[in-house]
Design a protein around this nucleic acid. Structure first.
Lengths: 183, 183
DNA sequence: GGATTTAGATATAGGTCATAACTATCTCTG
DNA sequence: CAGAGATAGTTATGACCTATATCTAAATCC
């Protein structure tokens, strides 16, 4: 059945192909069911927002995960690495490199925990607090751009719906092979 | 070693150890402003949904990008690689490997384009169409789980808000270096 | 016919997410 | 108290995704 020549109609350009090809139109493809898939819509929206984040935070040399770590440590001084990683949804091994970088840049510190010599008490340095303060102003304008197309009520609802999605999707995940969670 | 002989109480559980038998509390950290950052909320929700996707699609050995490619090619038979990549928001070089894999598995094909010997006309094979049909049933239940916490009206609104966020965030991104889109 | 552009491919690098395995320390129990 | 087991952090590693620069062949433009 290699007779594929019959239904080859691309149907891409409703007007008669590009005989003289003037504009080389972008030829928008049909996305099919994709826009109705929650994961796809979430991913596209997230990438768009993160693109703005990256651009806005480039001067501070902070990536989203680093910024969230600074924020979390600031809100929970003295917390353990495993606690911080868990709260941020980052695997502990990956959080190590993140902290290494923050510490190397003098933004955060692994202070010895008093009661447990295994664990570290994370805290921001003065420099870290200063950078975080700068970052807060940056994030404010970033946030304004990200939610710029929404009314205040819509933004509030969006956050609420996202929280619910994360809750329910995180709770009853389709289980298959044991221990297979691949990214 | 500084005075390590201080053997104080474990201090892990505010109430006296595990004496009461309550499991070690997770000690939820304060997330600070994070839940009010759109990018953060989007990312967490997306990861939760994708985790379910991965689990559900593991038997088909389809990752999100592969599934979306199958869907797109099915909806646009004969399209070019660059068109497909652009529609999916994937860089062309990265789409090459994706197509290589789909083609190696006999799910899609790079047919020669009639009018342009440089480009390929992408299309699904019979096997690809069959797998896609199976995938559609899987994605239906996956979608039901992902949106399980939402009413139909809420789900509709969520999609609408996500589309708006993607639009506006994609439109006026904080610009730094010219030509730097997403990173 | 030569310059430019476009389609696709290759190579490469960085970032994110995940797992296994190792060391050091703590806790619990016999 | 000693050893079993759990926990905190680290290292190493791999899969996947994303982005850039570069290369070729072929189309298009002048």
């Amino acid at each position: 059945m290699t007779n594929a020549a019959q239904r080859k109609r691309p149907a891409r350009s409703p007007s008669g192909s590009n005989a003289v090809g003037l504009l080389a139109q972008p030829t928008r493809l049909a996305l099919g069911a994709l826009p109705h898939l929650l994961g796809y819509s979430l991913r596209r929206a997230q990438l768009a927002v993160f693109a703005d984040f990256h651009a806005a935070f480039a001067p501070l040399e902070l990536r989203p995960a680093q910024f969230s770590a600074l924020l979390l440590i600031d809100a929970n001084p003295g917390c353990k690495q495993s606690e911080a990683a868990e709260a941020l949804g980052i695997m502990q091994p990956n959080f190590v490199a993140l902290m290494d970088d923050l510490e190397a840049r003098g933004l955060a510190r692994r202070a010895p925990a008093k009661a447990d010599r295994r664990s570290h008490a994370l805290e921001l340095t003065g420099k870290g607090r200063l950078l975080l303060a700068r970052a807060m102003t940056v994030v404010t304008s970033h946030e304004a751009r990200a939610t710029g197309g929404l009314s205040a009520a819509e933004a509030r609802q969006l956050f609420e719906l996202l929280a619910r999605v994360q809750q329910t999707a995180g709770r009853d995940t389709a289980e298959t092979a044991p221990g297979s969670f691949r990214s």
